[in-house]
Amino acid sequence: MERTLRRFPALQAWLLLLPATAWLVIFFVAPLVIVLIYAFLERGTYGGVIWIFTVENFQRVFDPLYLDTFLRSVYIAIITTFFCLLIGFPLAFYIATRPQRKRNALLLALMIPFWTNFLIRTYAWLTLLRTNTGLINVSLMSLGLINKPLPLFGNDFAIILGLVYGWLPDMVLPLYAALERLDWSLIEAAGDLYASAPKVFLRIIWPLALPGVVAGSMLVFIPSLGAFVTPAILGAGKSLMIGNVISNQFLAAHDWPFGAALSTLMMALMLFGTLVYFRSTSQKGAIL
C-alpha cells in the first residue's frame, strides 16, 4: 500500500481529497443539480414536480411582481453593504492600529455577540423595534419626546438595521486583515511627501485596503441579498425580500419549480459577481 502510494503521488492526492469530495458531491452538488432540474419542470398540485420540460418558470421570473421584489432586495443589500462599510471601516482601522494585545481583545469583543443564535438576536431586535410595544417607542413616548410611535418596524428600515447588525463582523474581519497588513511607514512616507490626511487616505490607505473592502462587501452583500430570517421577522410580512418569496413558493404556494427557477437565477447572478471579483483581484495580484 505504502509503496503503491509512493509510486503514484497523484493517487495519494486523490485519497486525501476523497472525504471532502464525497461530502460536497452528496450534500452540495446533488441538491444543486436537483434545484437546477426542477426549475425546468412543471409544478405538481400539492408540491413536488411533474416531469414535463418547460421554460415557463423563467418567463414568470420577469413578472413585475417578482422583478420588483428582486430589485428591492438588491437595493436593500446595497444599502446594507454601504452602512456596514461606513461603520466597519473606521472600526477595523481603529482595531488594526491598536497594540497587538489589545487587538485580539477587541476582535473577541466584536465576535462574542455573534456566538448567540441569530434567530434569538433578531427576536431581540423585535422587542426593541416593535411599533406599539417596542422598548424604543415606549420609552420615547413615556418621556414625552414623541406623540405617536416612530415607524421602526415592519419596513425596509427595520430590515436594513437587522442586516447591518447581523453582517457587520463579516465586513470588519476582512477589512481588519487588510488594514493590519498595511505597512505604517507607507502612511508616514505619504505624509512626508506632502500628502494631507485626506490625500493619504484616498491615495494610500484606500487602494491598499481595497481587497479587504471588496471581500467584506461580498461577504455582506451576498447573504443580505438572499436574507430570509431578518425580513421575515423584522419586515413582519409587510416588507418582503426575494428570500421570502422563494420560501413562500416552496412552502405556501407549493410551486417548487418556480421557487427553483428563482433560486437558480439568483445563484447565477451571485456566481457572476464572484467571478468578476476574482478576476479583478487575481489580475491585481499579478501586478503587485
Partner: peptide, 20 residues
C-alpha cells in the same frame, strides 16, 4: 508642524515604496 508642512524629505529604512 506635521511632516507634510516641513521642507524635508525622508528615505525610510525599508524604503516604504508604495506597492500599488
Amino acid at each position: 508642524l506635521p511632516p507634510h508642512r516641513r521642507p524635508v524629505n525622508t528615505v525610510f529604512q525599508n524604503y516604504a515604496l508604495f506597492p500599488h
